[in-house]
């Protein structure tokens, strides 16, 4: 019963992040939306029991964000 509640909450989190990423116009806001989306995805990996994969996924996502920020800093300054 409570396990299904957790699944419903994570689903809400994921679709909130995806809709925010797709609909917002400012690039910085879109990156914040990706952060919310990844926060919903990682507990699913942990719930299946793959902890080492969760560590690597959590460390690789900021690298991707910093690569995109490289372009943003170059464009606006």
């Amino acid at each position: 019963m409570i396990e299904s509640l957790i699944t419903i909450g994570l689903t809400l989190l994921i679709f909130l992040g995806a809709a925010a990423t797709a609909l917002w116009k400012n690039p910085f806001d879109k990156l914040i939306g990706l952060s919310i989306l990844s926060g919903g995805v990682i507990p699913f990996i942990v719930m299946r029991g793959y902890l080492d994969v969760a560590i690597i996924v959590a460390l690789v996502i900021p690298v991707s964000t910093i690569f995109i920020l490289l372009l943003l800093g170059r464009r606006t300054s």
């Binding site: 460390l59 910093i66 490289l70 800093g73 170059r74």
Partner: peptide, 20 residues
């Protein structure tokens, strides 16, 4: 050129790249 000069970009790469 890469004029993105935030502080994190100086300290994060050695530790993070080492772990990876």
């Amino acid at each position: 050129s890469c004029p993105l000069d935030i502080e994190v970009i100086q300290t994060a790469p050695p530790i993070l790249a080492g772990i990876l």
